[in-house]
Design a protein around this nucleic acid. Structure first.
Lengths: 263, 263
DNA sequence: GAGTGGTCTAGACCACCTT
DNA sequence: AGGTGGTCTAGACCACTCC
């Protein structure tokens, strides 16, 4: 009904003064609910891994029907921000679970499904704070002179160094990130970001090219210069499409491949 | 209600004899409706680009509520098999539209959004029927000795040969596919497959590696041997996860990149 | 105005999990 | 038994498109 008894703003039925209307900007109720849920997620009211209130609770809180809340949650679940578990509740998605452990890593072994399930040895090469290079600052939406944390690391599969990557994070939200913290932490790096810095990576774009290994890459991955490598540049976003990480990786693909699903 | 008045099989409430139950295999009504819609799509009862019956029509036909039909269609639309257009109807998705023209081609220009929107010159190098090589036959689920159609072509962007690819199709469904047909056809190849052979590619898996151009690739793309190239191997499926095309492509990435979205 | 998909509601019942 | 998400229904109304 979109009745005005609702606590929510109901933009469309409001009789606006005549004039050049730009766009009616009709927004369904469930979209408004979705935005409210998103705000609670971003503010940390509900933390990764924890359950959010039940559908009936939310329905009474927002003064809408359960079906409307349901549709809002459906969309958030489809975007992998929430996780529904029948009989138990709805939970804030996290990178700290076995199931979603390597959701953003698309490199798989050519052999059977002996994928990077073997947790892949990680070695941190460096972690330092510095002024953002121009391209990095631009990608992360920082101002000139802002500081970033730069991390370099190597991932190995079965003792073969396979991924050499470099990543940049905005200095402000990642204040306490040091080599010690990174080295001592177990589990996925994105899980560390969640638990220690309250930053949850929600989606990412990747750009992939084929390049020849230069001297530095050859040294880092212990292979001959000129070897073809996948260059994977990732820009990862947190809630509300805010860029939070730039990552540049070089992948060996003699025995691995980058897997993608099209639909 | 899942009542027995329904014309559909209602597996779960059927009182089965006691014994070692394997799996209750509860299947919601809307999933059964979805399967029926899928069957009509596969059989060609509704063709790509055409509208399917309205939700109310389908609801009365299947003796269920509109909401149940709606949920079935929702899922098919989410999988890009159907396309909803408010006020007009629901249509069978097709590769012959501007909007979905290059849905499966992930190579983009490094510059602004001057992507492969420029329709990219296509040149067919060859088209021949031959016995399926072992790996191809395996991927396509063919029997030993079955014939396949093999096509080779080059795609150029702004007169620069950029993609060299080779593809194999099962000989049986693609009986009349000749070099003449391929050369004279305008528009995406997958649109040709739909209109001339009734085969609609629904989803695909890609495996990506970095390789060095060999002599043949160097000749085909007019570049120096050893140049790093993206190797993209695609297995494309039609309805019901049936593999229908194997494609191996080599992409130049000096001025282009393969784009991927993670979520 | 008629037809289509899109939203919203209220209520019933089912399947799954915990206690 | 009681709570949670999941399914299904019936009906009302809204937004969009076409005639």
């Amino acid at each position: 009904m979109n009745t005005d008894l609702s606590p929510l703003a109901t933009p469309s039925p409001a009789p606006e003064p005549a004039g050049p209307q730009v766009a009616p900007a009709f927004s369904p109720l469930y979209q408004q609910i979705k935005a409210l849920l998103l705000r609670s997620l971003q503010s940390g009211e509900w933390k990764p891994g924890e359950p959010i209130p039940s559908e009936v609770d939310l329905a009474t809180r927002f003064r809408v029907s359960q079906g409307t809340v349901r549709k809002a949650i459906d969309e958030l679940a489809a975007e992998n921000l929430l996780l529904r578990r029948q009989g138990k509740g709805t939970f804030v998605a996290t990178h700290a679970e076995q199931r979603t452990q390597f959701r953003f890593l698309r490199l798989h072994s050519d052999l059977g499904h002996l994928d990077p399930s073997g947790p892949a040895q990680r070695r941190i090469l460096s972690c330092q704070r510095l002024r953002a290079p121009a391209d990095v600052g631009l990608a992360l939406g920082l101002r000139a002179g802002d500081t970033v944390v730069q991390v370099q690391r190597v991932l190995s599969f079965q003792d073969v160094p396979t991924i050499l990557e470099q990543l940049w994070l905005p200095g402000d939200p990642f204040k306490g990130l040091t080599l010690k913290v990174l080295t001592e932490h177990q589990g996925p790096m994105y899980a560390l970001f969640e638990s220690e810095f309250g930053v949850r990576m929600v989606r990412a774009d990747e750009r992939i090219k084929a390049v020849a290994a230069d001297a530095e890459a050859a040294a880092g991955l212990a292979l001959a210069p000129g070897t073809p490598l996948l260059s994977v540049e990732r820009l990862a976003y947190t809630y509300h499409d805010q860029p939070m990480e730039l990552r540049r990786g070089l992948y060996r693909t003699e025995h691995h491949h980058y897997r993608n699903q099209l639909s």
